[in-house]
Amino acid sequence: MPTLTRQVSRGETGWEETGGKPGLLGYLRTGMMPHLWCPGCGHGIIMGAFLRAFDRLGWDQDETIIVSGIGCSSRVTGYLDFDTLHTTHGRALAFATGVKLANPKLNVIVLAGDGDLAAIGGNHLIHAARRNINITTICFNNNIYGMTSGQFSPVSPTGSWATTTPYGSIDRPFDLCELVRAAGGTYVARGTAYHVRSLTGLIEKALKHKGFSFVEALSQCPTYFGRRNQLHNAVDMLLWQKEHAVNVRAATRMDPEDLRDKILIGELYRSEAPEYTEEYARIREQVRQKAREGDLVQ
């Protein structure tokens, strides 16, 4: 047998102890900084909103599993000091479903991008919603594939420009919130990086909700989306969010004509339905009860 000796040592990639840091830093692997997100990227704001929401709930960091896919936003799991799972492209929800089903006591949270959730992993999104499994999913939606330098995604607006839509996009975008609601998700909300306080509140509610909860968080990618779409920098993009987002409650009092190019933010849908892991636990109890009664031969 070959002798396999100790091969790497702590700190090889710049990692160091982060324990005992005050406030939100306690949730971060600060040794992993600097992060790889570009200056002006909205992902850090959304990560911050998530951590504030998590902190407000006072949940146990050690009983929380965070799962991501592939892409800029999915690198977030590397920065968070939890049990973290950085999976294959599109499959974050499928991995998360396995984690949650195998140990329903764990808080399971998926942080992933629009390419992950709407394109390659679209099937897993609708089926996780259909099962109403108690997983919170936050979609970092920047309308673009940033990691591969700027291809259009299924949520890029029609007519937008990307490296793979050199003549403007003819694709019609998904409304992810409508999709998740139609598929059976029981908590659906949308927020933006600009409206960060509101976003934090929405994430907090989503985390608390029992069942499949989904928050679409509009992010900005100045590097690849903004540059090609006449939004020259992060400030322009955040102002665009400010001007185009309308709270869903305010929208009820507005003229439909004025809402045409607007994006609704806030809590869009909430309902109650049987939660998947509880239903499975019920089945398990049922068959065991029957077995005890002798109806089933083990």
Partner: peptide, 25 residues
């Protein structure tokens, strides 16, 4: 379910493999 385990029929083979890895962790 009789032995306290978990069975799930996933939406495809890709997600089945993913769920197995998640569970194993």
């Amino acid at each position: 379910p009789r032995v306290g385990g978990t069975f799930v029929q996933m939406e495809d083979e890709i997600s089945s493999m993913a769920a197995v890895i998640g569970a194993s962790l």
